[in-house]
Structures are given as structure tokens and as C-alpha cells.
Write a protein that binds this DNA or RNA. Structure first.
Lengths: 204, 204
DNA sequence: CGACTCGTATGATGATCATCATGCGAAATT
DNA sequence: AATTTCGCATGATGATCATCATACGAGTCG
């Protein structure tokens, strides 16, 4: 590994860090190359020595953010499957996470953008989502994962992303906090139903 | 009502329709004024006779889309509260809705954009979300709405928006369909738990 | 019918931004 | 040590786009 190539790799890493933050903070299109390169400590023109395209950087930044995120995510021990899901929801659906999207979950930060992105980015989105589903499922014992657990993981991620998306969009702090709380406690009910109310029409 | 003013109001309505479609399809920033006005059958310069700003149009289009959407949404009879929630989820989380975001739910289409939008837009987002929560809760008998129902409505909307967001971002059709199915059937379980697996560690 | 009002059309203007051509200087190679 | 390589900086170029100034022409009102 020559000194030149490792300097370049360090620069690339800085660009990826800055890109991941900008993309999550400002959106796939909102992030300008000049601003990202400035944050990486380089000038704008150099960008094309590292990436072919803005789309290239967007995808790489997205994957970078999620790979980093999952590492911190999967840490921690759980008593039970349900307990694991509840813990993940508790750690995900926090006001702190809501208020710092530039360092948070890229699915929640870029979900709507992905829908409008070209097919190549959406392929990356799907692959990363699969990896995250697997990461949620990964039990200590590491047997084959039953499909019903995968379904639970999908449900967890959907609820987390949806709750975070709504909580972030809302201006009213009280409503935003309430959304987070409702979603957290729904996943925390170890044996109870999804919904808090009973089944009859006139429950209080 | 003079002929002039009703012509202008018609034009404004066309702009709002086009704006609502473009904003949901291309995002808050992705939608260009020229394209919207072209779709409304007018030229770009005329825009400023109807709206002060692009942000002004964005907010108005967002509200327009949701007001229209709720009307179609609230229709239909339900046997029970749980049944109502299940029905709404079943109608929301469809492949058709996923594949036509320009005429679908504005929360799912613009959730990530709202987080980056100025405070004024996020206030609108919060107000509209409150209205949608109320619309979900509105029972035929129209008594005072218990707070636990509001929580259920928040949960429903979070799961719907999150599931739709992920389903739209994913390139892989099979995974996308599965996300929709999992979220639908979670809300359909009238009495069962949120999660499909049992509570012990070694369930299959 | 004539004057004026106002909704719309046309055509700038200026800003932002992705992309690329060119050049420099330090590191690598012989 | 001379030459080549290559990572980075600088400065265009061209495209896109919001915004606005100006002009036209049909509707309105005296």
C-alpha cells in the first residue's frame, strides 16, 4: 500500500462520511457536491477523481451510512425475540434520533427520495433493507431464521421508519413526541395485541 | 361571481391539481414550476399571479392532496373499531397505491421531504396529520373520541406510512409485496398480538 | 362604445450546480 | 537525479430553474 493510494483512500473515506451526513440531512438531490467536498476538506473539482457521478456518490453514501448504522445497532443482548424487538424499537424511536437525521437511519431519512430515485439506487435500497432485516433477525445462537421472524422484522422496520418519518415531519413537538411514544409502546407489548383498545365498538 | 374571477379560480384549481400530482410524484423540490404550469395548461410566468412563492404552492398542494384524499378515505361502514382500522390498512397498503404515488397519500410521498422543509410547511404537515388522525377516529355515532383510539390511529398511520415508504423504495418486487402484506395482516389481526411469533426464544 | 382592469403570455435575469479541461507539485519509478 | 504518474486545485461551461418586468387582449364598467 503506497503512500499515494492510502492518502486517496483516506480522502475517499472523508468524502463518504460527509456524503452520508449531507445526503441524510438534505436529501438525495439537496446535497450539493461543493458542500460535501468542502466538509471533506477538499475542493469541488476533485470529486470526479473519486466518483463517476453524483448518483454514484449518493448510492455509496447511502450504503456507507447503513453499514455503519447496523454495526452500532446489532450490539446488545436480549432475553427473548420479543424483547429484542422491543429494545430495538425503544432505541430507534427516540427524540434524539428524530432530531439528528444526518447521523441516523438512512431508511427514514431517504425513504421518500428512494421512491423517486433511478432503478440502480432502488436496488441498493432493497439490498440494504434485506441486510437490515437479517441483522434484526440475527440471534446469538445463529440458527436458520424462521420466516415468521423475518415478517416480524419487516413489521418492526416499517413501524420504526413510519413513526420516525411522521415524527420528523410534524412541527408540533407534543404530537411528535406522542407518535414516538405510541410506536415504541406498541412494540413493547410482549404478548398483548397491536392495538391498545379492545375489540368492541364502545371501549373506552 | 364575475366571469373573470371564476376563470381565475378555475385556473388556480388546475394549478393545485397539477401541483399536488407533481409534488407527490417528484418531491417538494423536484417539482418545477414550469412543468406544473404546463400541466395546468398555463405558462410559467403566470404562476406569480396565483401564488406568492414556490413554497406557497408546495404547502397549498400538500393540503389540497390530503383534503381530497381524506374524502375518499373516510367512506365506508365498519362493524367495529378494529374492523375499521383493518379495512383502512387493507385499502392503503396495496400495490396500486404503491405504484401511483402522484395520486396517493401525501404523507408517504413527502414524509422525508417534510423533515427538511421550513417550519411553515411542517406546521401544515402537523395540522393535516391531526386532521387525518381525527378522520380515522371519526365513528358513525360521533361521540367524543377516547385517547386510546387516537393512539391506535397514530399507530395505524405510522405503520401505513412506513410500510408504504419501504415498499416504494425497494427495487425488488417480491420484497416490496411482502412488506405490504406483512403490514396489512398485522393490522388485520383483530385480537392477536402485533407480532406473529410467540414470546419464547425458540418458536418456529 | 370607449377606457380601464386584470389574467395570461413572452422573454429576460441571476443564481445554483453538475461536470470537465487544464495545470501544479509531490510522490513514485527508473 | 530525471522522468513519469497522479491526486488535488482552479476556473470555465452549460444546463436548469425561480423570479420578475413588460406587453397583449379579452372582460368589465362608465
Amino acid at each position: 500500500m503506497t503512500k499515494r493510494s492510502e492518502q486517496k483512500q483516506e480522502a475517499r473515506a472523508r468524502i463518504l462520511d460527509a456524503g452520508a451526513a449531507h445526503v441524510r440531512g438534505d436529501g438525495l438531490d439537496g446535497a450539493g457536491i461543493a458542500a460535501i467536498m468542502r466538509d471533506a476538506g477538499l475542493t469541488h473539482g476533485t470529486f470526479y477523481a473519486h466518483f463517476t457521478d453524483k448518483a454514484d456518490l449518493a448510492e455509496a453514501s447511502f450504503r456507507h451510512a447503513l453499514t455503519r448504522g447496523r454495526a452500532a445497532w446489532t450490539r446488545g443482548e436480549d432475553q427473548s425475540w420479543r424483547g429484542r424487538l422491543a429494545r430495538l424499537a425503544r432505541r430507534y424511536l427516540t427524540p434524539k434520533h428524530r432530531d439528528h437525521r444526518e447521523e441516523g437511519c438512512a431508511f427514514a431519512a431517504l425513504g421518500a427520495d428512494a421512491a423517486r430515485a433511478p432503478a440502480e439506487f432502488r436496488r441498493a435500497f432493497g439490498e440494504e433493507l434485506q441486510r437490515s432485516i437479517d441483522a434484526v433477525c440475527a440471534a446469538p445462537e445463529d440458527g436458520p431464521v424462521p420466516e415468521r421472524r423475518r415478517d416480524d422484522a419487516i413489521l418492526l422496520l416499517s413501524l420504526c421508519v413510519g413513526g420516525m418519518t411522521l415524527a420528523r415531519g410534524v412541527g408540533d413537538r407534543a404530537l411528535s413526541d406522542r407518535i414516538l411514544r405510541v410506536c415504541r409502546s406498541a412494540m413493547a407489548r410482549e404478548t398483548g395485541p397491536l392495538l391498545s383498545s379492545g375489540g368492541n365498538d364502545n371501549d373506552q
